[in-house]
Design a protein around this nucleic acid. Structure first.
Lengths: 129, 129
DNA sequence: TATAAAATACGAAATCATTCGTAGATAAAT
DNA sequence: ATTTATCTACGAATGATTTCGTATTTTATA
């Protein structure tokens, strides 16, 4: 049904994944530099985390050269969906509609996003089927 | 601007809050019984967690009687919103629209919820202003 | 009244996530 | 060729969360 299941990334791991999704294959140095644009993190901290993520299958690593290059193992969408499923269950007990209401009620959404959402809702409208 | 800020509940604490939001003021025994409908948890585990939550201000406690009665400190909506904000930032880098799309795309939402959402979107439609 | 049951308090183990220091290997620079 | 810089590996400290055992007190029961 579905491919081999990976553990969900922790918050720290997710920070790194965001960088890899954004920048593509990167060295530890590159990832760490990006991290330090946001907050102070030691080089070996980033290295260690990437090694752990590799051992968990969250990233892949090209170690054919001395300087290793890391890459995300799963696409952003798939990971976000898995995280969302867990959060929806934990915080909203699965009530997706409640969550959307909370989101639309309290957050800025761009006009572009809103129109995509309207389109999606229109497609789901039973009157239109 | 806003009242005193409390720490966000952990996942374990959230499980207990869900029970308190559902059942209202409850004894440790009552909370623990509810917990055990879902999974095996020792009585003192539930007790300890409630005591920690009290010390954090996440619940209030009536200890005027020997058998203490616990109650949530904040309404469900407020807590959910705070959790959602953090999650949205962590997992979706603040892109609320992306998150809604992911939700509507992949999850069952009831007709009732969908119509509430349509209403909310209609209210936001600039053409309707 | 003596015993048993049930409650709270609290210490502490177990696990996980995060962080960094140090050691050792390799490459670059002088 | 030394020295310096940069890299990976890895152990380990720290802190947070979860879990439970034990001690103590209080209430209910026999």
């Amino acid at each position: 049904m579905h491919s081999t299941t990976f553990p969900l990334p922790t918050d720290g791991e997710l920070e790194i994944l965001q960088i890899l999704w954004d920048k593509g294959p990167s060295t530890v140095r590159a990832v760490n530099d990006e991290m330090n644009k946001l907050r102070a993190v030691g080089y070996t901290t980033t290295l260690k985390l990437l090694q752990i993520m590799d051992s968990k299958g969250l990233v892949s690593r090209d170690s054919s050269q001395k300087i290793h290059v890391y890459m995300y193992a799963l696409p952003q969408e798939q990971t976000r969906k898995a995280l969302l499923d867990r959060f929806l269950e934990n915080a909203f007990q699965g009530a997706a509609g409640e969550m959307v209401l909370q989101l639309l009620g309290g957050h800025r959404t761009t006009e572009d996003e809103l129109s995509k959402i309207r389109q999606l809702l229109a497609d789901r409208d039973p009157k239109k089927q």
